[in-house]
Amino acid sequence: MLFIILMITSLYFAFNLILIAVWREMMAKHQVSAHATDTKLTVIIPVRNEEKYILQLLKNLNEQSYPADNFEVIVANDGSTDSTESIVLNYQEEAKYSLKILNLLNDASTSPKKRAIQKSIEISSGELLITTDGDCSVSPNWLMSIQQLYKNNDAKLISSPVTFTEKDSLWNTIQIIEFASLIGSGACAMYLKKPNMCNGANLAYTREVFEEVNGFAGNENVASGDDEFLMHKIAKKYPDKVFFNPVFDAIVRTASQENLTHFYQQRRRWASKWKHYDNWQVSALAVFIFLANLSVLVAYCMLDNYFGKGILLLKFSAEFYFLYSIIKFLGYQSKAKYIPIVQLIYPFYVVFFGLLAQGKGYRWKGRRLE
């Protein structure tokens, strides 16, 4: 038993060393030549009850350095019961870009977000489709950074970084650091041409490839996964045309979860798609991460001897440096002192949600979904 724990932890240590090396290489080698801003873009924003945030995002889009006459914005209003619709309609005159609102019926769709994106694509005109969420904020060069990477690489899909908007609270800081690990590891996997995760809050893909892989067909009955299932389909057909965008201007910032209840429902929603992956490599990696963190929980019970302390040191050392590299890129270098706190509680989180993923159902945006 002890030998197995040591072996798993040693592999996890080596895994993090590889991530560090890949991240450094990706950041050092990233270069994008200047290209004409002649690509028609469509920004798709699925929303449900986002009156608190949607106006800020629309204003951010009004400040884009990308030509306003060369991108359109479609807000897919998925049965909002607040003032989201009126806010969007009132902003149409002020918007420099073409702003459309697509009102969807509040029906019992199994996957409302996929439906919202699909319906938006049907009325869009862009060559490159970019999705984000209604509670996000973006920099003035957001669209430019994505379009230039697209032109430079003839990309089929581009995943750009996502983080949480900074607040003066430990709970917010913990979420920022925890989520940074997902963004960093997903970016490294894409650089190695083995993509395993992305985030629909900052995702771009061509209309042509969306139609070529038949969009969301094959996982319509899974509420979550509008981003990763599509990425896996595209990567299977074009393994060299899936890219991560390692540019600070490309970062999308979104609201962190206000409390544990909302955090639980969000992470349960994310975990619900794990068992539907048909890529054995992605599934194997998920199992490996689960076992590595389970080993830490065992080590916690052995802190009275050198073996338990050695296991924790082995896991936390390389992991700390990798997390530091990501949060530094995200502009949150001052939060590095909180990384050990996240490292201590993260194993409980991984094991808990790893087991929870075997269950069914969660609540999101006022709906009960499977």
Rank of each mutant, 00 (worst) to 15 (best):
Q358M: 12
D154L: 10
N293H: 14
M197P: 00
I177L: 13
K52L: 13
I130F: 08
N293F: 02
F290T: 05
N245A: 00
N202G: 06
L2Q: 14
T163L: 04
I289E: 12
A299N: 00
I44G: 04
L61I: 07
N141C: 01
N106V: 03
Y324N: 06
F329V: 07
A116L: 02
S125I: 04
C136W: 02
F263K: 09
F210K: 04
L58W: 01
K273D: 04
Y238E: 11
S98K: 15
Q281I: 12
D278G: 00
D82Q: 11
L17Y: 10
K96E: 09
A217F: 10
M190I: 12
P246K: 09
F210T: 03
V296T: 08
P46D: 07
Y321T: 07
A284R: 09
S169T: 15
D154P: 00
G79S: 04
F322D: 02
H30D: 13
Y97M: 03
I130R: 03
K193V: 01
H262Y: 12
R368W: 13
E212S: 11
A336Q: 09
F307M: 14
K114N: 06
R115G: 01
S120A: 10
N106I: 00
V242Y: 03
K237E: 08
L41H: 06
F248N: 13
N219D: 13
F244V: 01
V213L: 02
N202E: 06
K100H: 12
V209H: 05
E319K: 15
N90M: 10
I87V: 14
D227I: 01
I158W: 05
E93L: 13
D82S: 12
I123W: 06
T173I: 14
Q31S: 14
N103A: 09
L143N: 05
M190H: 14
L192V: 00
Y324Q: 09
S317I: 04
K156E: 13
I8A: 02
L330D: 10
L314M: 14
G354L: 02
D82T: 10
R253M: 07
M190R: 10
A292N: 01
Y338M: 11
W274K: 09
Q56L: 08
Y321A: 04
Q147K: 11
Y53I: 02
Q31H: 15
